[in-house]
Amino acid sequence: MTEPLLQLTDVHTHIGPYHILQGVTCDIPTGSLTMLLGRNGAGKTTTLRTIMGLWRASSGKIRFDGRDITTCSTPSIAQAGIAYVPESMAIFTDLTVRENIVLAARSGPVDSARLDWMLGLFPALKRFWNLPAGNLSGGQKQMLAIARAIAEPRRLLLVDEPTKGLAPVMVRSMIEAFRALKAAGETILLVEQNFYAASALGDNVLVMDDGRIVHSGAMSDLVADQVLQQRLLGLSLDAHQ
């Protein structure tokens, strides 16, 4: 079997006196979109931030593309090819859309073919190209945050709740954009609370509870099992249609 692109083994993370991750073990296969689901406070965001080195793992091991990155700095993890889109989006609202993209491409100007591809994913960004990013709607800001993450080729995208607070029409646009990213062969680990979006996108699923992975498998199997949905997440897909 092919070695996973990302592998967490018994990862623990403490934030101050709080023991947030309590032995997270999971694999992220290359070329897949893996959903990370769980109730509020389960440890999903902490998992992403620990992978990026923004919070340091207390113990355990994180391997990326065969390399141990557990103790690496965040800049070095980013340079290895991991991009992170936080829930806050972290765009520069006073800068134009174009300037946000330029700043994200640290190795030089964005290749014109890649820029055309990005703007094809998110057409709204082209319309607002020379306007301050602060003028964008919430959904458009989320699109810009993702576009910044892929301004340069990346090996892995970590995305935290991209559809949170978006209107249904924007959720559908986001789903289509992620489908296109999947079709392009991107490897994505995506935290999502919208189970409808998760079911539409996920190849694989990890479910967290109380700082641990309590379920892993094919997303299609979870979608087909309402009893399992209710037990793991306290919801069912029918309630989110």
Rank of each mutant, 00 (worst) to 15 (best):
A197G: 08
L222S: 01
T46N: 08
A151Q: 13
D160C: 10
M1S: 07
D94C: 03
L166F: 02
N100C: 10
L201Q: 07
P4D: 09
M208C: 11
I188V: 12
I91G: 05
I15F: 12
M52H: 03
T50Q: 01
A224Q: 14
P153T: 12
A145C: 09
Q226V: 02
I175D: 01
L103W: 01
I69P: 10
A42T: 04
E192R: 11
I175E: 05
S32H: 14
A147N: 08
L121N: 00
G53N: 00
T47E: 01
T2E: 15
L21F: 04
M174Y: 06
I15A: 05
E152L: 10
L119T: 07
G211F: 04
H14T: 05
D203C: 02
S59R: 15
Q193A: 13
C72D: 15
G217F: 08
K126L: 12
L125W: 04
G23I: 01
H14G: 01
T46C: 10
Q22G: 04
G53H: 02
A224I: 04
Q229S: 03
F122C: 03
L103C: 09
R56M: 05
G139E: 04
G234R: 08
T50D: 04
L190H: 08
A145Q: 03
S73P: 09
T163V: 08
T13F: 07
A57T: 09
L5F: 05
E186S: 14
R127P: 02
R231L: 11
L235P: 00
E192L: 12
S32G: 01
A113M: 08
L8G: 00
G38T: 06
F178I: 06
L189P: 03
G202V: 10
T74F: 07
G31R: 11
A145T: 04
A167P: 00
P153A: 12
T30I: 06
F178Y: 12
I175Y: 06
K141T: 08
R67K: 15
D111W: 11
V205I: 13
A224Y: 10
A147Q: 07
S220G: 12
I213K: 03
A133D: 02
I146L: 07
L5E: 02
R114M: 09
D94S: 15
R106V: 14
N194Q: 09
Q226G: 06
V171L: 02
F178R: 13
I28D: 01
N194C: 02
A239R: 14
K126R: 15
E176M: 13
M1E: 08
L201Y: 09
P75N: 12
P153F: 13
L233K: 02
G185E: 08
R155W: 08
V102K: 10
L156G: 04
S73E: 14
G165C: 03
L131G: 07
L125Y: 06
V11Q: 08
F122W: 14
C72G: 04
L232I: 06
L21C: 05
G185F: 06
I213Y: 09
V159W: 02
P17H: 03
E87Y: 02
R172G: 02
H19D: 13
R154C: 10
T71E: 15
T34W: 10
A239C: 02
